[in-house]
Simulated assay, not measured.
Amino acid sequence: MDAMQQHMIDSYRAAQRGEAPPPLPGRHDWGVVREARDARRFAAVIEGRPANRRWRTALRERLIRRPPGTVGRSGGPARPGTSGPSGA
């Protein structure tokens, strides 16, 4: 039985009992996704981890194990005194 068939049965049962029909399947899916994301971010803040990092970035940094303050693919430190393409 798929979700639509279950919804039809639940709607019929609600009509027989004089209750409000259930919401359509998929209506609250994005709300559930948002709540799960917010709960994960909240747990990260409570545990002292950054809450807004993408999982791919975090995984890549964990695998590469770059020290803090490094920039670029080589992992070397940023050159001091350069503020743009002109080098001034």
Rank of each mutant, 00 (worst) to 15 (best):
R79E: 01
A88W: 01
A51Q: 03
S86V: 01
E47I: 13
H28C: 02
E61F: 14
V45C: 14
R60D: 06
V71H: 12
A39L: 05
W55N: 12
P50C: 15
P85K: 02
A39K: 04
T82A: 02
A43L: 07
H28A: 01
R40G: 01
G72F: 03
V45E: 01
E19P: 06
V45Q: 10
M1S: 10
R17L: 14
R66N: 14
S11E: 02
M4E: 00
P25D: 00
R41W: 05
G75K: 13
M1T: 01
A39Y: 04
D10I: 11
F42C: 11
T70R: 15
G18N: 03
G18Q: 00
R79S: 00
A43Q: 02
I64L: 15
G84V: 00
M8E: 03
A43F: 02
A20P: 07
P67I: 05
P77F: 07
P50V: 07
R34Q: 05
R13F: 06
V71G: 11
H28K: 03
G75V: 06
R79V: 01
G84M: 03
H7K: 06
S74G: 07
R53M: 08
A58W: 13
Y12F: 12
Q16C: 11
P68E: 13
R79D: 04
R54N: 05
N52L: 13
R54K: 12
W55D: 07
A14L: 04
D10A: 04
S74M: 11
A43Y: 07
A15P: 09
I64P: 08
H28D: 00
